[in-house]
């Protein structure tokens, strides 16, 4: 077999020795291979959800949690009134030195219609949560029912590796609880008590934060994320965490 290979190699030395049939065959194979990769990329553009979730097909037909809590932010509606931050602090007893949600500000000096844009941020409740992976004692974990990234306060050793791993700066150490604290979509303070909305979503007077179950096709968050004509994105997709907080305009 090796002898045959050597023989073949010797026969194929130089492009002059290639017949036109062989060249055509090689080109076809190359196009097929390219098509597989390019086709995958092109297909992923067709569905925002696939792009957001990074792995084509993985979450296209079925969301892994029921309900699968999610939020979509209408950036252009935000005026930085900070009522969401206040409501969060009151509802979840957030100390002055910390926050679960925040509003970032982006200056756009050469913008035509506006020179500043506000960007509300909070825990993205990532499907591939780096914080949950790195925690040595499983003090932070993905809730198996609803996908919320939660804290089991009594297990937190305060190594702060979750703070380091989070690509969204969504965590801080709460000195009163002696544990890292973070957004849990108000699960303990509202959702588990029958409320439909998080405190921040309810407090927003401009309807920036749309909260709901993305696995429910009737929900607004599902309809907006799946609306083909709408541009939807996530923050830091390169971190590969498959976040559940989406951003859009309009």
């Amino acid at each position: 077999m090796i002898r045959n290979l050597i023989k073949n190699k010797q026969q194929n030395e130089g492009v002059e020795a290639l017949s036109s049939d062989e060249r055509r065959h090689f080109l076809k194979m190359g196009l097929k291979l390219t098509g597989v990769f390019a086709g995958g990329s092109l297909l992923s553009l067709a569905s925002v959800v696939e792009k957001v979730y990074a792995t084509p097909g993985q979450f296209n037909d079925k969301y892994p949690y029921k309900p699968h809590y999610s939020m979509i932010m209408h950036l252009d509606y935000c005026v930085d009134c900070e009522r969401c931050i206040e409501a969060c602090a009151v509802t979840n007893d957030i100390p002055k030195y910390g926050f679960r949600t925040n509003i970032l500000e982006r200056q756009i000096p050469d913008g035509i219609d506006q020179q500043v844009e506000f960007m509300p941020v909070l825990c993205n409740h990532c499907n591939v949560a780096q914080c949950a992976r790195v925690c040595p004692t499983a003090a932070t974990y993905k809730n198996e029912q609803n996908g919320i990234v939660m804290m089991d306060v009594k297990k937190c050793i305060g190594c702060l590796s979750c703070q380091l791993a989070c690509p969204y700066n969504a965590r801080y150490f709460n000195e009163e609880k002696w544990a890292v604290d973070k957004c849990n979509f108000c699960f303990d303070t509202r959702l588990s008590k029958g409320e439909d909305l998080t405190a921040c979503a309810e407090a927003c007077p401009a309807g920036v934060r749309i909260f709901g179950d993305i696995s429910d096709q009737r929900s607004r968050v599902y309809r907006e994320v799946h609306q083909v004509s709408r541009t939807v994105w996530v923050l830091r997709p390169e971190a590969g965490t498959k976040p559940n907080v989406f951003y859009t305009r309009g």
Partner: peptide, 22 residues
Amino acid sequence: IKVPIRMLIYNIISPNFTSSIW
């Protein structure tokens, strides 16, 4: 480590095998 006493307990009874730190 901010709460070392918890480390001694939960590193043993609640290990996270995906954690490099563990």
